[in-house]
Design a binder for these strands. Sequence first.
DNA 1: TCCATAATTCATGTAATAATGAATTGATTC
DNA 2: GAATCAATTCATTATTACATGAATTATGGA
Lengths: 110, 110
Amino acid sequence: MEKTRALDSLSALSHEVRLDVFRLLIQAGPDGMSAGQIADALNIRANTLSNNLGILAQTGLVRSVREGRSIRYFAGMEAMRSLLGFLMQDCCGGQAEICEPVLNQIACNC
Amino acid sequence: MEKTRALDSLSALSHEVRLDVFRLLIQAGPDGMSAGQIADALNIRANTLSNNLGILAQTGLVRSVREGRSIRYFAGMEAMRSLLGFLMQDCCGGQAEICEPVLNQIACNC
DNA sequence: TCCATAATTCATGTAATAATGAATTGATTC
DNA sequence: GAATCAATTCATTATTACATGAATTATGGA
C-alpha cells in the first residue's frame, strides 16, 4: 500500500460516524448491510451517511453492491489487511519475518 | 479500548508527519530514536515534530524516556494492538474466535 | 405514465487543524 | 553561574473538513 492511500484510509476511520459504520460492517460480516439499515442502526441522516460511505468506499474499506433500489455495503477486509501491513512494515528493526506471517492471517475468512 | 481513544489514535495517524514518525519508530524497534534523530531522518522542524510527537504520545502510540538532554521515543506496540482489537471487535458476525487469536499475536516481540 | 422509496449530490455557513516564527524550559559543560 | 544544546510551548494565520437543507438520480410498483 502506498502512503497516500494509507493516509486516506486512516483519515476515513478517524471520524465517529465512519468508524461506527466500519465497525458495524465488520460485525455484520459477509452479509453486509444496506445503507438504510446502517442509517437506522446508527441513527444517521441519509445524506450524512451517504457522504461518509462514499469517503470510506474511496479507500476500499467498504465495498458496495446494488440490490434493487437498495445498495448493500460490506467491510473491505483486504483493504484493512493491507493498511495494517503498511503500518507494521519492516517492524522491529528489520526482523520483518516476525510480523508479516501474523498480518497475513488478518484476512479472517470473511 | 473505548471509542474516544480509538478516534484519537486514528486521527493521530492520519497525518503525514505523524504517520512517518510512527512507522519510523516501528522500524526502529526496541532501540527507539531521539527526537533529534527523528527530525534529522525525516527532515522536520523541531517544533513541528514536537507538536506531532505530543499528539502521538497522548494516544500511547509512542512512548518516551528522557536520556540526558535528549528524549528517546518508541512505538507503543500495546496501544497499536488494542487499536486493532477495537477495529476488529466482534468480527465476522460474532465469530470472534476466528480473529482474536490473530490479533493477540500482533505484539511482535518488540 | 405516475408515484413512492432509496440513495446521492450540491451549496453554504461554521468549526477544527496545521505550519511557522519567536520565546521558553530543562540538562550538560566549561 | 554563564553558555550551549535539545526539546517544548505559545500566538498567529491559512487551510480544510463537517453538518445541514434542498434538489436530484435511480429503481420498483400501481
